[in-house]
């Protein structure tokens, strides 16, 4: 069981490392769909849903952080941990006896 824990910890460390350390270096060019939408004049039809106006970390920039690289890295850390918690929690909930 300890080997298993070690493996899981390693996986998480790699994910957090990528999300925090490497994400500030990622390309900021538009992705495939954004590029096609720009080129063919329908990018302007996209917009945020009213709920997304209140998104805690819009555009992968952690709020209140001046340095954009740090803001991106922190959003990566927060997002990775949030996704881990959501995924783990969801499986736990559906496996609850009688749940």
């Amino acid at each position: 069981m300890t080997r298993m824990r070690l493996f899981f910890a390693l996986c998480l460390a790699v994910s957090v490392g990528l999300a925090m350390g490497l994400s500030p270096l990622a390309s900021s060019s538009p992705d495939g769909l954004e590029r096609v939408a720009d080129d063919h004049g329908f990018a302007g039809q996209g917009g945020l849903h009213p709920v997304q106006q209140a998104a805690p970390v819009p555009d992968y920039a952690f709020p209140g952080i001046g340095d954009p690289r740090l803001a991106t890295g922190l959003s990566g850390l927060a997002g990775t941990l949030a996704v881990l918690a959501l995924g783990w929690g969801l499986v736990r909930v559906v496996r609850r006896p009688g749940g």
């Binding site: 899981f8 996986c11 998480l12 790699v14 994910s15 957090v16 990528l18 999300a19 490497l22 994400s23 990622a26 992968y60 991106t72 990566g76 997002g79 990775t80 941990l81 996704v83 881990l84 918690a85 959501l86 995924g87 783990w88 929690g89 969801l90 499986v91």
Partner: peptide
């Protein structure tokens, strides 16, 4: 499942 999802989130950034 959670670990895989976390890795995919990180890699998608």
């Amino acid at each position: 499942l959670g670990l895989t999802a976390a890795f995919v989130f990180a890699a998608q950034m």
